[in-house]
Simulated scan of single mutants.
Amino acid sequence: MTFRQHHLDLAGDAPGQTTTLYWYTVGPDDAPTKVHLQAALHADEQPGTMALHHLLPMLRDADAAGKLNARFVIYPSVNPLGLATRVQRRHIGRYDLETGVNFNRRWPDLYPQIAQAIAGKLTSDTGANLALIREAVGAWLDEQRPVTAAQRLRLHILKSAYDADIVLDLHCDDESLKHIFTSPDLMPGLQDLADRMQVAATLTAEDSGGGSFDEVLPNLYRKAQRAHPGFPIPMGAETATLEYRGQADTHDAVGAEDAQGLFDFFAGRGIIAASPAPAQPAPGPTPFEATEVLRADRPGLLAYRVELGDRVKKGDVVADIIAMDGPDAFLARTPLRAGTDGIILSRASAKFVAINASVAKIVGSEILPARAGGYLLED
């Protein structure tokens, strides 16, 4: 058996502080495929942790039966620093309280760091070019000297993921249907993952603007391809952010279903020797630029007129905002209208909203001019 638990003690930024990161490896050390799975990078998003809790024993048992054809590296809760950021009984696991930086933003742009190292060394051999790029990234990562605990954690995660063939980052939304974020270069290749998850949408973008973790490796290979058009350079990693519904949807039975979906995805790829049942087709990819992030144009109390999954047309009322000040305080209701045709993918669970707060995501099919080339994330 190769199922092993590992841990890393991260020295904190104040005297006497230490945080322990746990992860597991399973599968043959010499397997041709490496899979990196992580959950709760936003540490207050737990549905992915529940799914990996159920997936771990499934992989352990498959390994004991000699059925794994890949090396799995699994971080059920990849951000122990964020687990500790509680303020007055509220978990602030999305942001580093020291810097204010979102834990899933500002991941490095790797290609400029390794461009010189690979210059003049690429060949007509696709596999050799992939190995060269990975070697250069590994060497650059080894040269880094992180200072803070957060920097050391990020470096450790990158060292685990940079040479993986499949990298899945498990998250959730606020109140939401299941969906995926991935690169357009990786579709329709990852449609089998969308089918196994039974997502409501797969949203694609080359660069959503925030330096998200799932964009690090696709951006590396894409930039290498564009800088060296005469050489065969593959998209060396299939990466995606998997959004498992909403924060409140951390349920044992649901996590078991999500784990089975992941297991069946890997089995369908042949990296687990098992025969999964056929999957029902999920919707195909949609440019993230076609998704409206509907924002409140005034503060107040939300009264939704739509449910998750409802289809709306441009101009339909998604919610009323009940006034909480002024001469008509707690009487007036101002409609907030959809700016596109599409389905309601997510809503805000907190019903008091500040001005410009995200209220809903509406997945349409037409790229919205205000979204094209802009910052696509809610943050």
Rank of each mutant, 00 (worst) to 15 (best):
T20L: 10
F3D: 02
H171S: 02
H171L: 00
K223V: 09
I118A: 09
F330E: 06
L141T: 04
Q17K: 14
T202Y: 02
R226P: 07
T286N: 06
G339I: 10
G48D: 02
L186W: 13
Y22L: 13
G255R: 11
E366A: 13
A296L: 11
I321E: 13
Q280I: 13
L158H: 10
F72L: 06
S212C: 08
D328H: 14
H6R: 13
N104G: 00
L190N: 09
K223H: 06
A296M: 09
A329R: 08
D207H: 02
L302C: 11
T2W: 09
M187R: 01
T19M: 08
D44Y: 13
F266H: 07
H36A: 11
D9T: 15
A62G: 06
T20R: 15
D174W: 01
G16Y: 05
Q151W: 14
E175Y: 00
E366L: 10
P28T: 07
I343S: 12
G48Y: 01
E45S: 01
Q225P: 09
N102F: 00
P276C: 09
T202V: 15
W140Q: 13
A277N: 03
R94Q: 09
L203T: 00
E215T: 02
L190G: 06
G373K: 02
V254Y: 12
L190F: 10
A237F: 07
L203C: 01
A279W: 12
L10A: 04
G93H: 06
K67T: 00
I114P: 00
P47Y: 06
T126P: 07
Q46H: 09
E289F: 11
